[in-house]
Each structure stands twice: as structure tokens, then as C-alpha cells.
Design a protein around this nucleic acid. Sequence first.
RNA 1: GCCCCCGUAGCUCAGUGGAUAGAGCGAGGCCGUCCUAAGGCCUGCGUCGGCGGUUCGAGUCCGUCCGGGGGCGCCA
Length: 575
Amino acid sequence: MTDPQTVLTERVQQALARAFGPEHADADPLIRPSQFADFQANVALSLGKRLRRAPREVAEAIKAELSDFPGTVEVSGPGFLNITLEDSWIESEARRMLADPRLGVGTITPSQTVVIDYSAPNAAKEMHVGHLRTTIVGDSLARLHEHLGNTVIRQNHLGDWGTPFGMLIEHLLDIGEEAAVAQLEAGQGTEFYQAARAKFDADEEFRQRARSRVTTLQGGDPATMRLWHVFMSATIHYFNKVYDLLGVTLTDADIAGESMYNPMLEQTCDDLEASGAAVVSEGALCVFPPGFTGSDDKPLPLIIRKSDGGYGYATTDMAAIRYRVHDLKADRILYVVGSEQTLHFRMVFAAARLAGWLPDAVSAEHVQIGMMLGKDGRRFRTRSGETAKLTDLLHEAVERAAAVIADRGYDEATRDEIAKAVGMGAVKYADLSVSHDNDYVLDFDRMLALTGNTGPYMQYATARIRSIFRKAGLEPSAATSPIVLGEPEERALALHALDFGALVEQVTVESEPHRLCAYLFELASLFSGFYERCHVLRPGVPPETRDSRLALCALTMSVLETGLGLLGVPVPERM
RNA sequence: GCCCCCGUAGCUCAGUGGAUAGAGCGAGGCCGUCCUAAGGCCUGCGUCGGCGGUUCGAGUCCGUCCGGGGGCGCCA
């Protein structure tokens, strides 16, 4: 790792150990970027208190120990060290980073097996805009973990089982398999569901058929299972079309829907009951994980088997967590699921710990996805009349991007390709660039914006860089000249690039892709300033300056491309 | 009733206990013989919901109140 903060932290720790004794080598000097210098080290709290010395005295002592530091160190304020790095240090580190295929991103050792549960659309309903964030955030987390060398097991926990499938199968029979498949593959899942629902509500005969169909489905009747497969494969075909357009890495191999756990549910309940983790209460089999109480301070149950003998989603989640730990060998399980399920997952995790199915060494984390709200600030309902079809949003995104480049003389295929990349980049970045756990108001214009802090802004920076290399007749990989920092824009750009590796690692550990977005936006902004004021190929630019700037462009592009790749935002060659 | 989350600029949002709280959008002005103007530069924009506490230092931690949302035994 060559990022300045890590290097500076180590240097200050060493200085501290020399000045005050080796027992202080593990202190955290809190190195942060500063408006007054490149970085500020705070020695007031972590060191001054611990040493029972005046912060200024500590700061002075550390400064004295850093006399050989490649840069300037100044004491300022009550316990602050302002640190400015020497250009030559940044230059050599930037060049080292440029030559490093991993751009300073380390690998996690030992590598972990990370199970990531995300997307999980309900097959009984159409994918709407609300499914986007879990899909995009989960996919980015999967890419990040893979980049750090972890083994990622994607789990698309499809809603593909349960009572609605009785009426869906009967409706499929009513309208004919062929017509049903055509409708479902075309993305008309909502209409299909609504038609079935309407008959279910209005027609007693249909209702009876639907109920008995649920029974035969759960009994594993071959003819019914075949119909279920027909329905599911058509629905999955549609999901895959959406995933393809979005560039999401989920495949059929990642599907692990509720139906998959169905055969395990009985054993799940039996084992929980036999171990004493679950007890029968009011006719239902329940786990009462400690620390959860509802109204009247009564212990809150996680209902594993309903009083009618049926299974609910808690049963499935208990079976799933055991499967993920025991069979998939997970070290870390990420549930990228809506925040309204927080209590549910806390209880599932606690129950799994209680049952001994989730060892302390394995972490189970709920990566909360905030709720999508309507314009009224309340939970979004498709009934409210607002447009919410995911495919509508995605097609609108491509159309708006196409409109911008309509008159740029690209051939049709190129134009379509760029429009798709830019449109998806805009939509995905919009969902990735804010904290995943905050509720958010659905706003097409925000998600489709093409200027400002958007995906296309970063894409545009890479397109400009590519354009420079095209004009220079070079491949970016050929730009390996020494980087010489003359202008402040060059220095700021190189310095920020050096942070990439440490940031990616932190973002992955903390499951916070929005911080990678913020980093990349800052980098692209710095590049734009550089681009305006530091010409590369213009006449009059000295050859060594030109070569240095080409190397800086190459470094910037590598970071942007890699970073956008980790977000799942496509990088078009030109725009 | 109990538990959890949220409240930061007109809007959408960042903000790891550190100095003068930042971006984007929107508004106004400027930059065009010049590597892609999806860009750059400038300007205005704040009781960080209120009060109290801890701290050398609080948007950040604690308490309390107000406002909004979510959840709380057989939906997922």
C-alpha cells in the first residue's frame, strides 16, 4: 500500500515510539486530508491524553523526530501537525502506482468466502424501480469483494414460492401456456399477477382451484411442478433481460430462491425444536432470541412454523443461513435487503447464533436498503399512479442519453452502444452515490441526470482521456514516463489518485460504495481542472511535460476505469 | 405503548470527535481560432430540528423534547 495516509500514519507512529517509548507505536495519530496542508495529523486526543502531556509538546516532539521526512511538518493549533508532502515523493509514488496493475489495491489475506444476498425480485410481481438499489448495490459489493480476492457467492433469493403461485399457475392454465410465457417474457408480470388476483377476488371457483393448486404444488405433484417451471423460466427470462441491460453480474447459477429451501424446512424446524432453541407457543413453533421484546415486555417470537403447520419467511431464512454457513462455507454473509426488515434479520441472526448455526467467526450483516418513497414522502405504492416500471426508467435513460449524442455523427450501432452505456451509467451511479440505507424519494429526473455529480461525468472524463491518447497515437499503457509535478492541478490530481487502494479496501469492508462514488467524482473533478489548465498535446508543450502529463492521464484513466468497474458503471470509449 | 431509523443550503444529498460544515441541481454572470462545452471559472445560498450534557474541541457521542418514517406472533 502506497497511499499517503497509511505511510504517514506509520511514520508518525514510529516517531512517537522514538520520542515517547515503543509502547506508543500502536497509537492512532488520525491522519486526514486538510485544507491547510496536504494532511493533518491530530495528536491531541489519541496521544496527548494518553501521554498526559500538552498536545503542543507532543506535536513538537513528533515534528523533531520527523526531521528526515520528505516534505514539511509544521505544528499548528492545539496538537495538530500540518504535513505537506514533497513533490518528488508524490511523483515516485504515482509512477509506482501507474506500473502496478492493482493500482495500490491490496488483497485480503486470508481471503474470505463472502455470500451476498441481493436483488431477490418477487416472481409474482414485476420488477419495479424499487428493486434497483438492492440489485445495483449488491452487485457492486460483489465486484468489490472479488477485486480484493475474496470468493464471492451471489445468492438471488427469488420470491418464487408460496400461496400466490396457486393462482398464478391456474391463471397460466386459463390463458394457455404459450400466451402466458409470451406475456411474462415481455415483462408484463404485473399485468399477469393483477389478472390472476382479480379472478381470485371475484371468482369462487377460481379461488378453489388456486388453493388446491397450492396444495399440489407444495406436495411436489409433477404436473404442477412442470407448470411452475414454465412460469418461472419465463419470469427468469425476463429478469435476465433486465440484468443484461443493467450489466448486472447475476446469472441463473446464482438463483437460490425460496423454493430451493422448501425441502429443508421440515428438518430446519425439527432440528431447532430438538435442540431446544425453538418451543411451541400459542400453537406455533417459535424461537425466542434473547433481548427482543414486543409490547408489554413480552418476549418476541421468530415464528418458525405457523400454528396451521405452514412455513413462513423466517423458516426459509433460518434454513438459508444454515445452508450458507454449513454448505457454502461463508465467512461473511451480506443481506442487501430493505431496511424495513431490520428487526426480522436481527432476530434471524440472533436465533441462528442461539441455535449454534452461526458461529462467532462468521459475520452476518444486514446491508440495509432504504425505502423508496413516493412524492408524498410515504412509502411508494404503484397504486398512486406514478410510473415505476424499472424497464420504463431504463429505456428512458437510454433515450435521453441518445438525444445528447444524436448529432455527433456516430453510426447507429456506436450511438446505441454509447447511449446504453451512458444511460445505465447515469441510473446506476444515481443509486450508488448516496448512502444505501437512507429512504429516498423516487425521482426520474434525478436518476436520469447527465450533468454534475453523475455517472456520465466520470465517463466523460475517461472519454476525454481516450481522445487525447487517440490524438497522440498511443495506447494509455504506453504512457510510462516519469511524472513531474509542475502545476497545482497536476499535484492535486496525482495526490488524490494515490488514495485509491486504501479507499477501495475500506469501502469493501464497510459496504459503502457511495464513498467510492465520492472519491471518483473528486478525481474526475480534479482531472477536469487539470484538463482545462494543463494542456497535453498542444503546440508549445515541452516533450517531457507532455510525456509526464500523458502518464498522469493514464494513471487517472486506470483509476477511473477500475473504480467505475467496481461500481458496475460501464466505461464507453467515446461519448 | 415499546423498539429502530431519519431531520444538514430553495431541492437532492455528502460529511471517519478536529480548525472557516461541503458537493451537485436550481438561480445570476463569465470562458469558444485551442487535446470532446456531458466541461471550466466566478457569485449568492446554513438557528446542521430545539434544549441540555460529555469534551481542549460536537453536524458527529449521551440525555431529553419536537417533527417524519418504519417495525412490533403466525405476509415477505
